[in-house]
């Protein structure tokens, strides 16, 4: 195991993060504040509480997930995409590193950044609502697993994308709708019955539901199902990355 290489990649990515720290933290914080002003205060004051949780508080887990998902994907995809874009990926390809080590370095760094952002959003939310976290351990578990899974997904997108448009495509066209329709701002039980069924095909629903359960002990689907789903998602991403490296997908001819 080339531990030095993992460290080199991880800290190199973290250094890149540090350089863009202000914008990477400012933008999720600002958007969270905006969501709170619009949904929490302006609209939320007219919405009754959901499952005995005030609306402002109810949307906190969904808001964190929204940022977590988009940030994880954009961080991880940009890191590897940029190397391909500048051509400097040659160095990693010619280095004595395995696919596994490269993934740990890149995904680890992207997940770390997302985790930091998630924590900051949680703290920001604390200024607007009185937070309560019923199961801190599971909250942390969902937070960390989501950071890792979606950083992996971002890594895959970064490997797959060969231009900037493609890099934006999946986050914009797939992830954002899935998050919005995955119950970040509402309980699935509020939907008509037909759409409740459709929503069950949305993997993000299970994330948000499980995450929300760790806060308020209310959930749209059972926690066990949430845990299984996130594990399946994590494993699928791992398998995909493994396959991509084995075949040299878009990297090696």
């Amino acid at each position: 195991m080339n531990v030095e290489a993992i460290k080199a990649i991880y800290f190199n990515e973290m250094r890149r993060t540090r350089k863009t720290l202000l914008q990477s933290i400012a933008s999720p914080v600002i958007s969270t504040v905006l969501y709170f002003v619009v949904f929490g205060s302006a609209i939320g004051s007219r919405i009754q509480s959901v499952d005995d949780v005030s609306y402002g508080l109810f949307i906190v887990p969904g808001l964190i997930m929204l940022s977590l998902l988009t940030q994880s994907i954009s961080n991880a995809s940009f890191g590897i995409f940029f190397l391909k874009f500048t051509g400097s990926i040659y160095e990693i390809m010619s280095a004595p590193v395995s696919f596994f080590e490269v993934v740990i370095g890149f995904v680890g760094a992207a997940a770390t950044k997302s985790f930091i952002i998630g924590t900051i959003i949680l703290a920001t939310a604390g200024f607007f609502v009185e937070l309560r976290i019923a199961h801190p351990f599971w909250m942390l578990f969902f937070l960390v697993t989501t950071c890792i899974s979606f950083s992996l997904l971002g890594f895959i997108i970064g490997l797959w994308a060969d231009n900037f448009e493609k890099l934006q495509l999946i986050p914009l066209l797939v992830i954002t709708p899935l998050v919005f329709l995955g119950g970040s701002f509402y309980s699935v039980s509020m939907l008509p019955e037909f759409w409740q069924k459709v929503t069950l095909f949305n993997p993000v629903l299970y994330l948000i539901s499980g995450f929300r359960w760790s806060f308020f002990e209310v959930s749209d689907v059972s926690v066990t199902v949430s845990l299984v789903m996130i594990s399946v998602f994590l494993l699928t991403c791992l398998a995909t990355v493994y396959f991509m490296f084995k075949t040299g997908y878009k990297l090696k001819q």
Partner: peptide, 17 residues
């Protein structure tokens, strides 16, 4: 793009173990 000379050389050293 934004790498500092000494950082990028140190990175290479680490990458090769």
């Amino acid at each position: 793009a934004f790498d500092v000379v000494v950082d990028t050389v140190r990175f290479s050293r680490g990458l090769f173990g």
